[in-house]
C-alpha cells in the first residue's frame, strides 16, 4: 500500500509540495521542531514533513486543519477554469477564440492551425483540473497527527467540540483514506462522473 500511496503522491505532486510547504509554515508558527523537510520521498512520509509530535492543546488541530484548508482553497481556485469549461460548458472548442487575452497571446502561433488550437483548447482546462485535483487529493493530515488531534479533541469542552466537530471528522476520516490512496481514487471517479453528466 505504501507503494500505491507514494505513486499517488508523485502523480499529484503539486498538491503534495504545497501541503508540505503549508505544514512547514504551520510548524514555524507553532514553534515545532522540524526533523526532515523533504516532501517528496519514497516512504509513508511522502507529501508531509517530519516534525515533532504536538502535545499542546488545540495546536494539533490547527496543524492538521490549516494546511488542509489552504490546499482546499487553492484547489477550488485552480480548478475553477477547468470546471467552467469541462463540466459546465463542455467547451473544448473556441474558448481561445472567444477570449481576447488568449487570442492576443496565441494569435500568430495558432493562426491556421486547427489541430493545435483544438489541442490547446482541450489541454488547458484539463491542466487546471489536474492542478485542482492534486490539491484536493492532498488535503488530509498524517494519521499520526490525526491521532494526536483525536486525543486532544477528547479533552475539549462541549462547545469547542461542537465547533470543531465537522472539520475534525473530515480530517479523521480523510487521514487514513489518504494513507491508502483512496482519496486519489475517490476524486478521480468524481472527476470522470462530473465530466459525463
Amino acid at each position: 500500500m505504501t507503494v500505491f500511496y507514494v505513486i499517488t503522491k508523485f502523480l499529484t505532486f503539486p498538491g503534495a509540495i504545497t501541503k508540505a510547504l503549508f505544514e512547514h509554515i504551520m510548524c514555524k508558527v507553532l514553534k515545532l521542531p522540524v526533523e526532515d523537510t523533504r516532501c517528496l520521498r519514497t516512504d509513508e512520509m511522502c507529501g508531509h514533513i517530519e516534525h515533532e509530535l504536538v502535545e499542546r492543546p488545540v495546536a494539533g488541530f490547527w496543524l492538521c486543519f490549516i494546511p488542509g484548508l489552504l490546499n482546499f482553497l487553492l484547489g477550488m481556485s485552480l480548478s475553477l477554469f477547468g470546471v467552467i469549461n469541462v463540466y459546465c460548458l463542455g467547451n473544448y472548442t473556441g474558448f481561445i477564440q472567444n477570449n481576447a487575452l488568449l487570442s492576443n497571446l496565441f494569435a500568430s502561433a495558432l493562426t491556421g492551425n486547427a489541430n493545435l488550437v483544438s489541442t490547446v483548447n482541450f489541454l488547458l482546462p484539463i491542466l487546471f483540473l489536474w492542478l485542482g485535483f492534486s490539491m484536493f487529493v492532498n488535503m488530509a493530515p498524517l494519521p499520526e497527527d490525526a491521532l494526536m488531534m483525536k486525543e486532544q479533541y477528547k479533552n475539549l469542552n462541549g462547545f469547542l467540540k461542537v465547533l470543531f466537530a465537522p472539520s475534525y471528522f473530515v480530517m479523521r476520516i480523510g487521514a487514513p483514506l489518504e494513507r491508502y490512496g483512496v482519496t486519489f481514487i475517490l476524486f478521480a471517479v468524481i472527476a470522470v462522473v462530473l465530466a459525463i453528466l
Partner: peptide
C-alpha cells in the same frame, strides 16, 4: 453566449 461547448449544446 458565444461558443457554448457540447454540454450546453445538448
Amino acid at each position: 453566449a458565444g461558443n457554448i461547448g457540447w454540454k450546453t449544446a445538448k
